[in-house]
């Protein structure tokens, strides 16, 4: 059954949010889980995307994605009323939510999207929430307003200082960890390199840290093994063992390399799509 796009909005230069019909997923989904979609049936690739929000009553889920390659660009070109052929999920193990005490939630770039529902659930469970959200530049910062609502303390950073504090998220994270009442638990979601350095910081202060990994996947149900990562030296599968792992045990260097496995192919596909888009006049559409 195709999934209709009920609403779509551009959040920043390359970041989009869409509310789509997916009643079964909306009912089952818990924070920390994701979906896999493919736009058409025959030739489209399957990509994992974050569920930013759900409305079980309405039967919808909200997806947030960044336009980086062919499929995310094609998705960005879809409009309200268009349909996505396949959406399956919710995938992955839900986040373990409990009252840890004080939790620091660190989000980078598009990672703020999956972080938000987790932070919300943590807040609801009684935690004090310190959120640190960052982006390269002001234009790319998303969900600040939503984080303001649920955070006891919110720190915003941009790499270039165009908004908030000019810093990488690791800098305020370190300061928070150095406080007398250091956080009991950390959650970090963002680009692999950012998660790597955040985990290095929290490790110094012995703060248990969950990192949500965003690897390449095909089926997402524990069959292909493409999403494997090294946790404590052992292979684990992000789709069925994760997506969250003990951040202090993740081999981020290897993960970063594996994420780039298809970079050339992705660029080629993206360029082809952009050319095709110009020919069909789609470029004037948005």
């Amino acid at each position: 059954m195709p999934h209709k796009i009920l609403a779509k909005k551009q959040l920043s230069e390359d970041v989009f949010i869409a509310e789509i019909e997916a009643p079964l997923i909306a009912q089952a989904r818990k924070p920390g889980q994701f979906i896999i979609l493919s736009i058409n049936n025959e030739y489209s690739e399957r990509i994992p995307l974050t569920i930013a929000d759900t409305d079980p009553q309405k039967g919808t889920i909200s997806l947030i994605w960044q336009r980086v390659g062919k499929t995310t660009a094609e998705l960005a070109d879809l409009q309200q009323g268009d349909k996505i052929a396949n959406v399956s999920g919710p995938l992955g193990r839900p986040t373990h939510i409990e009252n840890f005490g004080t939790v620091v939630c660190v989000g980078g770039g598009i990672g703020n999207a999956p972080l938000l529902p987790i932070a919300k659930a943590l807040k609801y469970a009684g935690n004090k929430i310190i959120s640190i959200i960052g982006a390269r530049t002001k234009k790319l910062l998303i969900l600040e307003e939503q984080f303001t609502k649920i955070s006891d303390e919110l720190i915003v950073t941009t790499d270039d200082g165009s908004y908030g504090r000019k810093a990488l998220v690791t800098e305020p994270l370190k300061e928070v960890c150095q406080r007398e009442l250091k956080p009991n638990q950390a959650f970090v979601i963002g680009p692999a390199i950012m998660m790597k350095f955040c985990c290095e910081v929290t490790k110094q202060f012995n703060i248990p840290t969950q990192a949500s990994l965003n690897t390449i996947m095909v089926d997402g149900t524990g069959m292909c093994g493409g999403c494997r990562v090294e946790i404590d030296g052992k292979p684990k599968f992000v789709c069925v063992d994760g997506p969250e792992f003990d951040g202090h045990k993740v081999n981020f260097d290897l993960m970063i390399k594996r994420l780039n496995a298809y970079k050339e192919y992705e660029q080629k596909a993206h360029e082809q799509y952009l050319k095709h888009r110009c020919k069909t006049g789609l470029d004037k559409y948005i």
């Binding site: 690739e45 399957r46 499929t71 095909v218 069959m223 093994g225 596909a269 082809q272």
Partner: peptide
């Protein structure tokens, strides 16, 4: 082999660049 065959068969990666999106 699961991943290799799934990419090739189900996702038709043999047509990558000629329509198929899966590399």
């Amino acid at each position: 082999a699961n991943e290799y065959l799934t990419r090739a068969n189900l996702m038709k990666a043999y047509d990558f660049g000629k329509g198929a999106d899966t590399p």
